[in-house]
C-alpha cells in the first residue's frame, strides 16, 4: 500500500516556521533539588525508600547463602521459577537449593522461542538488570526479558552495587543509547492502576511483587 509520505512532508515544508529563539537551551544540570552522593549506602537507602513506597522491596545481601535463604523464604509456592541464564551463571551456588526444591526452568532450556503460555505459568522470575535508579526506585532491564518480566507474579532482580545509579541523568546517556539491543524496559515497582475511583491497586497485568537484591560480595 502506497503511503502519504510526500504529501505529508510537502505540507510540513509549506507550513514550517522555525521557533523563535528562546532564552532556554539544553542544560545538562540535574533538575533534582538535592543531587545524591556517590556513596552506595546513601543511594541504596534512597532506592529502597522509593521502592517501598511503591510496594516493592530492596535488600543488600552479603553472600550466596543469604541470597539462597532469601529466595527460599519468598518463593514458597510451586508455580515454577523462570531463571535467566546470566543469573544462573553468576549465582549458581545461591540458586542450587532453590533448584533442588522448586520447579524451575532456565532461559536456556527454551531451545527457540519462549512459549508464552509456558512462561505465564511461572509464579516467579529471577532476572539480572542493566541498572537501577535510586531517584525513582527503578530497575532497568534489557533484551530477552520481555515476557518473563511482564508475566511472572513475582519479579526478583539480582545485581551488583555498581549498577545502582543516582538518577535518571545517568541512564539517558549516549553510552546507554549505544549499548545496542532491541529494547530497554524500566520497571518502577509492581504493576499498578488507579482506574477505579482513583484507588490504587497493584498487580493489574504485570508482577504483583518486586524484589531487588544487591549482592555485595
Amino acid at each position: 500500500m502506497e503511503d502519504d509520505r510526500e504529501k505529508i512532508f510537502g505540507s510540513i515544508r509549506r507550513g514550517l516556521r522555525q521557533a523563535e529563539q528562546t532564552d532556554a537551551a539544553r542544560e545538562n544540570r540535574s533538575p533534582l533539588k538535592e543531587p545524591l552522593s556517590a556513596d552506595f549506602q546513601i543511594r541504596f537507602e534512597k532506592f529502597n525508600s522509593e521502592l517501598v513506597k511503591l510496594g516493592g522491596e530492596a535488600y543488600v545481601l552479603d553472600d550466596f547463602k543469604g541470597i539462597s535463604d532469601f529466595l527460599l523464604r519468598h518463593i514458597t509456592d510451586d508455580a515454577g521459577v523462570f531463571i535467566y541464564d546470566e543469573v544462573s551463571g553468576i549465582y549458581d551456588s545461591a540458586l542450587s537449593e532453590l533448584r533442588s526444591s522448586r520447579t524451575y526452568k532456565l532461559s536456556t532450556d527454551f531451545e527457540n522461542d519462549y512459549d508464552k503460555r509456558d512462561v505465564a505459568q511461572f509464579g516467579s522470575a529471577i532476572l539480572p538488570c542493566a541498572a537501577c535508579i535510586a531517584e525513582t526506585g527503578t530497575i532497568v532491564l534489557r533484551n530477552s526479558m520481555r515476557l518473563p518480566a511482564a508475566l511472572a507474579t513475582r519479579l526478583f532482580v539480582i545485581t551488583e552495587p555498581v549498577r545502582l545509579m543516582a538518577s535518571l541523568d545517568g541512564l539517558f546517556t549516549d553510552s546507554f543509547r549505544d549499548a545496542g539491543g532491541s529494547n530497554l524496559f524500566l520497571v518502577t515497582g509492581p504493576s499498578r492502576t488507579a482506574d477505579i475511583e482513583k484507588e490504587l491497586v497493584t498487580g493489574v497485568h504485570g508482577p504483583k511483587e518486586v524484589y531487588v537484591i544487591f549482592h555485595k560480595e
Binding site: 522509593e50 511503591l54 532461559s107 527454551f110 527457540n112 522461542d113 519462549y114 508464552k116 512462561v119 531517584e135 525513582t136 527503578t138 533484551n143 530477552s144 520481555r146 515476557l147 535518571l168 539491543g181 532491541s182 529494547n183 530497554l184 524496559f185 524500566l186 520497571v187 518502577t188 515497582g189 509492581p190 504493576s191 499498578r192 488507579a194 504485570g206
Partner: peptide
C-alpha cells in the same frame, strides 16, 4: 499525569526482536 516520579513501566522499543532473543 498521575503524580508519579516515574510511571511503573517505560518501554523503549528499538524494533523487532534480534536473532539472539527468544521473545518479542
Amino acid at each position: 499525569s498521575t503524580g508519579q516520579k516515574l510511571t511503573s513501566y517505560v518501554s523503549v522499543l528499538r524494533g523487532p526482536r534480534t536473532e539472539e532473543e527468544k521473545d518479542g
